[in-house]
Deep mutational scan, measured.
Amino acid sequence: QVALSRTQVCGILREELFQGDAFHQSDTHIFIIMGASGDLAKKKIYPTIWWLFRDGLLPENTFIVGYARSRLTVADIRKQSEPFFKATPEEKLKLEDFFARNSYVAGQYDDAASYQRLNSHMNALHLGSQANRLFYLALPPTVYEAVTKNIHESCMSQIGWNRIIVEKPFGRDLQSSDRLSNHISSLFREDQIYRIDHYLGKEMVQNLMVLRFANRIFGPIWNRDNIACVILTFKEPFGTEGRGGYFDEFGIIRDVMQNHLLQMLCLVAMEKPASTNSDDVRDEKVKVLKCISEVQANNVVLGQYVGNPDGEGEATKGYLDDPTVPRGSTTATFAAVVLYVENERWDGVPFILRCGKALNERKAEVRLQFHDVAGDIFHQQCKRNELVIRVQPNEAVYTKMMTKKPGMFFNPEESELDLTYGNRYKNVKLPDAYERLILDVFCGSQMHFVRSDELREAWRIFTPLLHQIELEKPKPIPYIYGSRGPTEADELMKRVGFQYEGTYKWVNPHKL
């Protein structure tokens, strides 16, 4: 086992960053958080920038500027975001240094004079007029057009580079997404736009490419001749908990499936790229999406959770019991969808996408189930092999396979070949997804960000279904809070070829 401390991990990262040409360590950078008073800024962006600063992973002359409508001070920003920093008493001095680099400007999102004030403020910072500028839009999409237009007109660096990070949702359907994309691309070049999907920053999602293309053993079996089906799962054990009003506007397909799960599907299904260059990788992902037809209604199961009468606390409440959810809402909190990649490698292999709230566990994984062994000599005792990439929690890679049961006879039983990170790298604290992705933006690497043509294809696949749901308002199937979801989803999976045995229990190697 390799035991690495946080300091050692960050030392390795620093070495990698400083050796590259793309990370300008000594240049002045300004990180501007648009929507600095909001939840995302408070819980994710400010803490992430602090962790990067604490670990010495930001360029040395980096300033952080918050911008929002609320009249706040840096002290206010500190008060609301610091509880999420997880700072230790030993880091007190470092924390003071961090907040000394912070400033805040209040202004409207659609007022040109406010942006001119913001620009004057940035120019007044040390070497601010020639600094590289990175704008993070932690804002609702309704203000994107006004904000990007004003940034472009008043706040661009004339000497350094300018980059803009856009948070999902990128529209509600193909038409609104196209409108937003066309607007942003009329102001910024594609190499300046970073559409963030934080799932692409997760260690195991990034590991998929290495697993596939750096190991000879997987190449020959990664196709329709050997793989019976692919299941991509995202499960949350909690409901909307008072935030249903926002969720109800989008629903589970827009929230998770059309982005996170579809991105994971691309990494499983794509061909080997010409290189690890950002556009070479994204070219292959677009090719996969172009091979997927629009979702067919007979390959869809929609569910909505109801309270568990035997549960406790939140578990007793259904989705419609959330006071922020519109009365009688038919918005799905669970969806199972089957897609097919219609190309030579994957023809006929079902890709089953499942996601839901208020389920029995927290889990995100990719599961490849292989065909049955031909010419069975073990009297149907063999179960199908599976390769599982567990994204969260407890990152893991393992192969479910058959071995001989101890004893006199040739009785096979299920076991696993474990390729888990935790076994080799004991207690290594890896940077989280937002840390990686923000560092990628500083480096100018777009590999783990969504390109406009990729986004367009993703919406093309799901828009007809979303429009049909909005028009017909089908009643989702009720499922109990804390269950596996509607049984109809299991029946759909069985119908397209997935075999669920229920006889195997994964042993978490992190707890051995």
Rank of each mutant, 00 (worst) to 15 (best):
I253L: 11
R254T: 06
R254A: 08
V256W: 01
M257P: 06
M257R: 03
Q258K: 00
N259K: 03
L261T: 05
L262H: 06
M264S: 04
M264T: 07
M264Y: 00
L265V: 09
L265R: 02
L265F: 11
L265M: 11
A269K: 01
E271I: 02
A274C: 15
A274G: 13
S275I: 05
T276I: 08
S278P: 12
D279A: 09
D280I: 12
V281P: 04
D283C: 04
E284A: 08
E284L: 08
K285T: 04
K285H: 00
K285A: 00
V286H: 08
K287N: 10
K287H: 09
V288Y: 03
L289W: 00
L289S: 07
L289R: 00
C291T: 14
I292R: 01
S293T: 15
S293Q: 13
S293R: 15
Q296L: 14
Q296R: 14
V300L: 15
V300W: 11
V301N: 06
G303E: 04
G303V: 04
Q304T: 08
Y305E: 00
V306A: 14
G307D: 10
G307I: 00
N308L: 08
P309M: 12
P309W: 10
D310C: 12
D310P: 06
G311R: 12
G311S: 10
E312C: 12
G313I: 11
E314D: 14
T316S: 13
T316F: 11
K317I: 11
K317C: 12
G318R: 06
Y319F: 05
L320E: 07
D321G: 09
P323K: 14
P323H: 15
T324R: 08
T324G: 14
V325Q: 04
V325F: 03
P326I: 07
R327W: 11
R327Q: 13
S329F: 04
T330I: 11
T331N: 11
T331G: 04
T331E: 06
T331L: 00
T333S: 09
F334D: 04
A335P: 02
A336W: 00
A336Y: 01
V337W: 06
V338N: 11
V338L: 10
L339V: 12
E342C: 13
E342L: 13
N343A: 07
N343C: 11
E344D: 08
E344Q: 11
W346E: 03
D347K: 15
D347N: 13
D347W: 08
D347P: 07
G348P: 02
G348L: 00
G348V: 01
V349A: 00
V349Y: 03
I352C: 00
L353H: 03
A358G: 11
N360H: 06
N360Q: 06
R362D: 00
R362V: 09
R362H: 11
R362S: 09
K363R: 10
A364C: 13
A364V: 12
R367Y: 04
R367V: 04
L368Y: 05
Q369I: 06
F370L: 10
H371C: 10
D372G: 11
V373Y: 06
V373D: 08
A374G: 09
D376Y: 06
D376A: 10
D376E: 13
Q380S: 12
Q381S: 12
Q381D: 13
R384C: 07
R384Y: 02
L387R: 02
I389S: 01
I389W: 01
I389P: 02
V391S: 03
Q392N: 13
Q392F: 06
P393G: 11
N394T: 08
N394Q: 13
E395S: 11
E395P: 08
A396N: 05
A396H: 04
A396D: 04
A396R: 02
V397E: 00
Y398P: 01
Y398H: 02
T399N: 07
T399Y: 14
T399D: 00
K400Y: 05
K400N: 03
K400M: 01
M401K: 01
M401I: 12
M402H: 09
M402Y: 04
T403G: 09
K404Y: 02
K404M: 05
K405G: 07
P406Y: 01
G407E: 09
F410N: 15
F410D: 14
N411T: 13
N411R: 08
E413L: 12
E413H: 10
E414C: 11
E414V: 15
S415W: 03
E416M: 02
L417R: 03
L417H: 04
D418S: 07
D418I: 01
D418E: 07
L419N: 06
L419D: 01
Y421F: 09
R424V: 05
Y425M: 05
Y425E: 05
K426E: 09
K426V: 10
K426M: 09
K426D: 10
V428G: 15
L430W: 08
P431R: 06
D432L: 07
E435N: 10
I438N: 00
I438G: 01
I438D: 01
I438K: 00
L439E: 08
L439K: 11
V441I: 07
F442Y: 08
G444P: 02
S445A: 14
Q446Y: 05
H448V: 01
F449Q: 03
V450S: 06
R451A: 04
D453G: 00
E454S: 03
E454T: 02
L455F: 01
R456S: 13
R456D: 05
R456Q: 11
E457H: 13
E457I: 10
A458H: 05
W459T: 03
W459M: 02
T463F: 04
P464T: 09
I469K: 06
E470C: 09
L471H: 15
L471N: 15
E472T: 13
E472W: 10
E472S: 13
K473L: 10
P474I: 11
P474W: 10
P474S: 13
K475V: 12
K475I: 12
P476M: 07
I477V: 11
I477K: 15
Y479K: 01
Y479D: 02
I480D: 13
G482Q: 08
G482D: 05
S483W: 06
P486A: 03
T487N: 10
E488M: 12
E488V: 08
A489Q: 12
A489H: 07
D490S: 07
D490I: 08
D490Q: 07
D490A: 07
L492S: 00
L492W: 10
M493D: 06
K494T: 13
R495Q: 11
V496L: 10
G497Y: 06
G497Q: 07
G497D: 12
F498S: 06
Q499C: 11
E501Y: 11
E501F: 10
E501D: 15
G502T: 09
T503F: 09
Y504H: 06
Y504Q: 06
K505D: 15
